[in-house]
Design a protein around this nucleic acid. Structure first.
Lengths: 162, 162
DNA sequence: CAGGCGGCGCAATGTGCTTGCTTTTTTGCA
DNA sequence: TGCAAAAAAGCAAGCACATTGCGCCGCCTG
């Protein structure tokens, strides 16, 4: 592995992570006063968390509605044969589709993969299914649901267990 | 609505959004040279995108494995009665559970809600189901799947349609 | 073809980040 | 319980970066 150094996460680190999870736009000194620290040790802690790989990356979340991407679909996909070749081929193909936000190999007899897909509208979704999903070797069953309302849409992890 | 100003998104804005979606840690001048601009107009464009609400927020993504959160579950939930009161009660309860990363009201006869939940292990998942999900009035059917592998786990939108 | 508008680049200013050093607090052991 | 060592916090200076005003250029319009 490439994780250089490991950090024991105390109460202060937990507060830092809690803030950064939701507010990645905070400056270091804004963050430092929220967690009750002066800027320098706060900055050092954040860098330690990055070096340890606990902070994976910073991202910017965009408004799909304003970008004309109104349709979000949840797709459950079953495979005909459960071989590593089938799975490998499926995953490497799916990884090239920008419409796919999430793709998980999951347990259960009904489905092998769960996908979250974002497209402009139904026409594009139809085209996506026909041209990209059903074309992949081994895809046997496809079940689509569509998002009516986003009650919660977050990337935050529950830090209460630490 | 409170969206102050609207921005027509040209090729440069698209490149900015594409970079920021994946690399929210970029400094403005790093971003500016990636999109082929000088720092000042780049900064102005980013702020315009923020003011327009196209850039919703910046977040920090953490490594769930290193934080001892090894289990991710996909839960499909059905409601006994499809009334606004039932839905409202369910949603306001679910919104208070930090383990729930995503909660969508979805189409389909099999389920009404799809949840993505993060917990340390199976014991905690069991407790979560018993103490938090099945306690909610109106929950009739619960189907759990568990994530075996994260093939794609992103927040990036497909900007190729613009 | 002339006028106006909008976006880009440059330079200066101000803000925030970073690094070395000192002080304080915590931890471990007698 | 007290002392010593180590780790973390705070301070100040140097530096990098973001921001703002201004002049210039290209484009669109009348």
């Amino acid at each position: 592995m490439s994780d250089k150094k490991l950090v024991k996460i105390d109460r202060t680190d937990r507060r830092i992570l809690e803030e950064l999870q939701h507010h990645g736009e905070l400056t270091n000194q804004q963050l430092s006063e929220r967690v009750g620290l002066s800027p320098s040790p706060c900055s050092r802690r954040v860098r330690a968390l990055e070096d340890a790989g606990i902070i994976l990356r910073r991202v910017t979340v965009l408004d799909h509605k304003q970008l004309g991407l109104s349709l979000t679909a949840i797709i459950l996909i079953g495979m005909d044969r459960h071989t590593p070749e089938r799975f490998g081929a499926f995953e490497s193909r799916v990884a090239t589709y920008p419409e796919v936000q999430e793709c998980y190999l999951i347990t259960g007899q009904d489905a092998d993969y769960m996908l979250k897909v974002v497209v402009p509208d139904m026409d594009h979704y139809h085209a996506f299914l026909l041209n990209k999903i059903t074309r992949i070797q081994g895809v046997s069953g496809v079940h689509s649901s569509f998002v009516l309302r986003r009650v919660i849409d977050s990337t935050a992890l529950p830090l209460g267990y630490l």
